[in-house]
Structures are given as C-alpha cells and as structure tokens.
C-alpha cells in the first residue's frame, strides 16, 4: 500500500485504493485481536455449560457439547461459595459508598483555594503515590488496628485512593466558583455548598469513580488471601485464587481426569465447577460493562488532564 501511495501521490483514485487496502488490513488485525479476547471467554463459557466428565475428554471448543446446568446448580448449592458471593457483594457496596463519601468530601476541601495548609495536604497525599511503607509495615499496622481477620480490612485500608482523589478534585476545579459564591450569599455554609452545589453537579465523576471502586472491590483477592485467615470471610476472588493455587501446585498432568475417577457418580468435576464460578464472577461486570463503558473511558480522560 505504501508503494501505491508513493508512486501515485497525485492520483486521487489510486490513493483511494491504497487507503482501502490499509483499512482492510487494519480491520483484519483489530478483528484478530478482538477474537483473542472473545474466544477464550467463549471457551470458558461453553465449558461451564458442558457436562464436567464430558469436558474432561477434551474437544469442547466454543459451544457446549453436552449441555447441562448442573455446574451452576452445584455452585449455588456450595455453601462456602454462596457465602463468598455475599462477602464480595457487601464489601463492594459498603466499600464503594464509604470511598465515595470520603473522597468527595476531601476533594471538596482541597478545592477551596483560601484554605490554609491546602498545598501541604495535597503534597502529602500526592507523595503517597510515589512512595509507601511497603507490605510488612502495612501488615503490622493493620494488626495493631485490629483489622486483620475482620471484615473491615476490606473496607477501611482502601477507602481513599490518592489517584482518584486528585481526579475528583480536578473535576471539582471545573465547577465555576460563581455558583459557590451565590450559594454562599443565599446563606449556605461550606457543608451546604458541598451537598447542594458540588455534589449535584458532579454526577459524572461520581459515577466514574464509583464504578472504578466497585470493580476494584469486586476483583480484589489479595486482602482476602493475606489479611484474612478464616476462609469464612473470604470474598469469592480469594476462594477462586485458593482453588487456582491448588491446581497450579499439582504437577499431575491432568487433574480433571484424576478427580473424575474419584467422584464418578457425580458428573460435575471440580474443573467444571470452577468454570461456572468464573462465569458467575465475571457476569456482573460483563452485563453492565457495555452500558457503563463510556463512563470508564471518561474517567481516563479526566485523569489525563491532570497528568
């Protein structure tokens, strides 16, 4: 296509051909990449709807061969997994709400230019993005605060993110000061301005940061795995991680067939159970994803302005 371009620079029709070839080339490349993302998901989806014993034989590609809902039924029968979903949902809801309240309030305070100490606070917060105490001092601090092995270890330590806080403040900075001034004249205090002027005008950024926080909570396995001994309080990601850990540690060539012999009465293998759990865990994000996608990307743009 380059050659075509070079030789016939002034020929509009030929340029069109070169352009078309380029378009086709890009479309093929991008489609291939999209398939790299979709096909593995489709494979897992088919496996989750396929009979476990049958799937262990191989040959299930992108459509279930022996269709069954047993895998999902088994997941919902398993008390520990259902409880883990409960933990995940409650931490996502609680954690996101707390984060949003804390971060919007703090961002509003940091927006007030006349506030003594404002630059110091901003700097102290920004510094934590560059340097931290590291895993062990943090762990000891959680222990001292009696957070280890308590549900609250999911909520409090991640409540404020310096990055999101600065994103929110950047957004708040775009709200015209005249609005605040007029609210002040109408008798609003700082808190009144926050609730009646700033918050109603900040729905887009609240949606973006709320979604980020929710996804982070939903996907977090680390705090469950390292700060929580009792498996009763594990979120579903940690439960899956422990299953994965076991599977990865086994040097056995084929775990699913081995387990199959052990439990041949039941056609749900641990493998197919895992696939069903993976699908259920991905489902909420997959379902809302196409609709909220524009908010996610909007968030990146707001972050970019700051950078």
């Amino acid at each position: 296509m380059q050659a075509a371009n070079k030789t016939k620079v002034n020929n509009k029709i030929k340029m069109g051909t070169g352009e078309r070839i380029l378009q086709v080339l890009i479309i093929v490349l991008v489609t291939l990449f999209s398939l790299c993302i979709l096909l593995p998901c489709l494979n897992i989806l088919s496996l989750s709807f396929n009979d476990g014993a049958d799937a262990a034989k191989g040959g299930v590609y992108f459509w279930p061969r022996v269709f069954t809902l047993d895998n999902f039924a088994e997941v919902f029968k398993d008390g520990s997994i259902v409880r883990a979903y409960g933990i995940t949902i409650s931490r996502t809801v609680l954690g996101t709400l707390l984060s949003l309240i804390l971060m919007t309030v703090s961002a509003y305070v940091l927006k007030i230019k006349t506030l003594p100490g404002r630059n110091f606070f901003t700097l102290a917060i920004a510094f934590t993005m560059l340097f931290s105490g590291g895993l062990i001092p943090t762990y000891i601090q959680y222990n001292k605060l009696n957070l280890l092995n308590h549900f609250w270890v999911y909520i409090f330590p991640g409540a404020i993110s310096a990055y999101y806080l600065i994103m929110i403040r950047t957004f708040f900075d775009t709200i015209p000061e005249s609005l605040e001034e007029s609210a002040q004249i109408d008798g609003c205090g700082y808190f009144g301005i926050y609730t009646r002027v700033i918050l109603p005008l900040s729905k887009p950024i609240i949606a973006v940061i709320g979604l980020y926080c929710a996804v982070n909570h939903w996907n977090d396995w680390f705090s469950g795995a390292f700060y929580m001994n009792s498996s009763k309080l594990w979120p579903v990601q940690t439960v899956l991680q422990q299953m994965l850990n076991k599977a990865m540690a086994s040097t056995e060539e084929n775990t699913s067939i081995g387990q199959l012999i052990a439990q041949n009465a039941n056609t749900v293998t641990s493998d197919s159970l895992k696939m069903a759990a993976v699908i259920i865990t991905m489902l909420p994000i997959l379902c809302v994803y196409p609709f909220i996608q524009k908010y996610f990307t909007k968030g990146v743009m707001i972050g970019a302005i700051k950078g």
């Binding site: 897992i44 299953m243 994965l244 493998d271 696939m275 996610f296």
Partner: peptide, 18 residues
C-alpha cells in the same frame, strides 16, 4: 479491547490454566 482490564487476575489465570 477494554474488557480484559476489568477481569481480575485470578479469573484471567484460572481461564488461562484451563
């Protein structure tokens, strides 16, 4: 193309392992 960004590492590697 954004989709994998929202999947947790645990999910991704469980899928990969399968």
């Amino acid at each position: 193309s954004y989709l994998p960004h929202f999947m947790s590492s645990v999910i991704i590697i469980t899928m990969l392992q399968r």
